[in-house]
Design a protein around this nucleic acid. Structure first.
Lengths: 160, 160
DNA sequence: GCGATTGTACTCGGATACAAGTTGTCCGAGTAAGTGTGG
DNA sequence: CCACACTTACTCGGACAACTTGTATCCGAGTACAATCGC
């Protein structure tokens, strides 16, 4: 069970974008910030765009920016946008093929093992849904007060 | 983010084995119960054996059986045995490659995003660690009282 | 001099290769029972 | 009749392919700016 690597990139990029509200930043610069492969990060940003988390504009002076307020973007939103909405534990319903299996039954609900795994995973998602990008930004501001200005300056200086 | 399919098989097989305490059951029969590919299920059972959850004996009259009491086997034990102990969200520490990155710092602890993802995942695992095979068996007995006897009979009849 | 137009450089976007991990399969090592043989 | 050794059949165990999925890359569609040409 491993999560797409792009999730981490997307999370960090969204936090960075929230430091520069209103401005559009190209995938190239976002990638340069962490020395990431530009084209691949671009792909993740496209996914965020499709999910309505970012808005993109083409051409010169184009780039990405947050499509909503940071407090309206949960960590789960980003995870789902990049990694998909499917559950990690996919109950294949093997009970169906068992000796007393009923093909019509929905074993995702009756199978007790499936239930246990599902509720655990649901809590996981609930916790991720409860935290927003704004929360992370707030924590960063209190823990590392210099970081917001530093990143702002970095992106501003690279503009040349 | 998807979990190995074998986890489901392993969970169900452990529950089935707990219905037949003291007896050894071959991978072939465990697989036949759900119409699963025998060799592949065998592979999963090997992993459970290495993890100390099952004990295996070779040769005729050989097979697998639970190595511990069902109340000493948590769902997390099985998940870890099959799917590995690595976290789903592996913080690659991309902050290291950032403009003010410190190669010596352990960003798995300082990075706030990593912390948020990690705590959510930790709760997930804690919940899985809190439930044991015995709990599942107990729930099955109260919800589907016939199931234990049915499966016992099935394995007994196939013995011929 | 001013405006429309064309050209250009830069961006995202999706289609396309490459690598890795999961899924599935096969044959060999080891073991316990059954069988035949000699005492 | 009993004990021993051998054969045999059956099991796990790890090594070996096939395939799906994640990773990485490239080139085309579209856009805004800038330079150029005409009036």
């Amino acid at each position: 069970m491993k999560m797409n690597e792009g999730v981490e990139w997307a999370l960090h990029s969204c936090v960075n974008l929230s430091f520069i509200p209103g401005e559009t930043v190209t995938a190239k610069r976002l990638a340069a910030f962490y020395n990431l492969p530009t084209a691949y990060l671009n792909k993740q940003l496209q996914a965020l765009n499709r999910a309505g988390i970012l808005s993109s504009t083409s051409g010169p002076k184009g780039g990405f920016q947050l499509a909503r307020r940071p407090d309206q973007i949960s960590l789960l939103d980003i995870v789902v946008a990049i990694d998909g909405a499917e559950d990690a534990f996919r109950c294949a319903g093997i009970l169906k093929d068992g000796p007393s299996g009923d093909p019509k039954a929905d074993y995702r609900k009756t199978c007790l093992i499936s239930q246990a795994m599902r509720t655990a995973e649901l809590n996981y998602r609930r916790e991720l849904a409860g935290q927003t990008i704004a929360d992370i930004v707030h924590q960063v501001q209190t823990t590392f007060p210099d970081t917001p200005d530093n990143t702002r300056n970095w992106f501003a200086n690279l503009k040349s």
